[in-house]
Amino acid sequence: MRLKRKDLLGLEDLDAKEIELILKTAKPFKELFTRSIKKVPTLRGKTVVNLFYEPSTRTKASFELAEKRLSADVLNISVPTSSVVKGETLIDTGKTIEAMMADFVVIRHSMAGAPHLLAKEIKSSVINAGDGTHEHPTQALLDMFTMKEKKGTLKGLRVILIGDILHSRVARSNIWGLTKMGAKVTVVGPATLIPSKIEKMGVDVSYHLEEVISKADVIYTLRIQKERQKQHLFPSLREYTELYGINTARLKMMKKNVIIMHPGPMNRGIEISSDVADGPHSVITEQITNGIAIRMAILYLLSGGETRELTR
């Protein structure tokens, strides 16, 4: 069994079986973390380039650890956003990396579709580590892995995504993945941050957090960015917290075995209060650990077999 694809660009493209395979493969990788030597020789001699056009701490660290634990050679290239417009084009950068015989390119970019453009042009496997407000497939996979680990199954699971859905690639990838795996997803947030026609993705929409939280098995709250206030998307952070913040009072309205998730980095006291973030329902730190296992599984599954062909 293997992923019959060159690239991992988004969960929109994957079917339930492929998602299942990735989640299943991540399990033995997680087991590796209990060993004193956490490294295996699987990708020895392979080269992975982490091409980051956007600052990222956790995703980059997670990928780098995953790559190193698989014994791949890792090269990090960080391109400041300012030079995206002026500097070398993405395709030229991609061609340069390809000429260095990279087997994988992990790309994070501030613009939707950048990984797709790269994947069309180069033979290396391209893994999307977040493109603009489009997709963040590895994050959603680690989230689903965490939910499955905690809840046993994704089928019928009630997941509530809270916050800035409009600008969230994490939300989009989770919606694709979770709906394909049979979970019931509700998105909650101010009307200005719910994108047009999102119901067509198979989710319910609510503007009122307290009307929906009692049914949730998983509460997934997203980072709210201050800049959005300037774009007239909500009046103030204070009002946002009042309407959509997850705190102890709201936790009491939820199921006893609810789990609380966040993709990080958190704005403590804004979308989530510290006591909830650090409390017994929170699985936020486990998400981070699981992220490494998921990324190892993806690298392993994309490394297999047949010679790679350009997909275009």
Binding site: T25, L301, G304, G305, E306
Partner: peptide
């Protein structure tokens, strides 16, 4: 499970499923 220690990861037709050790 020796899958991750094999020396033929990218040449075997059917990639073996990794299982727990």
């Amino acid at each position: 499970d020796i899958t991750l220690y094999r020396d033929d990861v990218d040449s075997i037709d059917k990639q073996p499923i990794v299982k727990e050790t």
